[in-house]
Amino acid sequence: MPRRAYYLSHPQVLIDPDVAVGEWGLSDEGHARVAALIERGLPQVSMMFSSLEVKALETARPLADALGCPLITRAEMGENDRSATGFLPPAEFEATADRFFAEPDVSVRGWKTACAAQRRIVGAVEAALLETSGDALFVGHGAVGTLLYCALCDVGIDRRYDQGPGGGNVFDWQVGHAPKAGWRPMEDL
């Protein structure tokens, strides 16, 4: 029986320049989108895997509870390491992210390279898929999700494959095959 895997990025976060990015939680809008997704219903999965970052866990925990499936956390599913810069104002962040994707072998402003982040997320997903014979849902972040998508599609790292603004997007694939479509809003899950 073919297995499906889903990759869901966390929705909107409460941005606080005085808090480490990995500790940001979901905003009221982000929590509302997760609750609405649960209300509409979710695909049945046998396991859920999540980044350890607060915003990912605040997305994954209620989903796993609603499905009654195990939630496994993985540090390797975290977002690309941006600790060298910490919080950046939106325009500066977007310009830096553009460079991160455009120069995947370069440490842009001290960030880990896109190539290194891609190897990490692909390895984490491949290892997780070995732990279940059923469908799986991965909850994480937009940038590394895009890097995973590029690897699954066997295309070069390119921001044109990035999710739309705000987060809370999903793509899925039959395990062993490339995704047939790109990111779409989580409401379409």
Rank of each mutant, 00 (worst) to 15 (best):
V106C: 10
A95K: 15
L130M: 13
G22S: 12
V19R: 13
T96G: 09
E29L: 12
V54M: 03
F93A: 12
P70K: 04
S133I: 05
L26D: 06
L67S: 02
L88V: 07
V54Y: 03
I72G: 01
A66S: 04
L37S: 02
A64R: 01
V122W: 12
L63K: 00
G68L: 05
E126T: 14
A35M: 08
S27P: 05
E29A: 14
R82F: 07
A97M: 15
A102W: 06
L71W: 02
A60T: 04
E23F: 02
S50C: 11
R33K: 14
E103I: 12
Q118Y: 07
A91N: 01
R120K: 14
G78I: 00
V108M: 12
A102E: 10
R61H: 02
A127Q: 13
L71S: 00
A36T: 05
P70I: 05
Q118S: 12
V139K: 05
V21D: 13
Q118K: 14
A36C: 00
R61F: 03
Q44E: 09
R74I: 04
I121G: 08
E23N: 09
V19I: 12
T113Y: 08
T146N: 07
M48Q: 09
G123C: 04
G134E: 07
T96S: 15
V21T: 14
R82V: 11
V45L: 04
R33N: 01
L52S: 08
A75C: 06
G134M: 09
T85L: 05
E76V: 01
E76R: 14
V108K: 11
Q118P: 04
R120Y: 06
D105A: 15
V34C: 02
L130D: 12
E39P: 00
L88E: 07
S83E: 10
R119N: 11
R99M: 14
F138P: 01
F49Y: 13
F93V: 04
M48A: 13
T113G: 08
G142D: 10
V34W: 05
V54F: 01
R33E: 07
L52G: 02
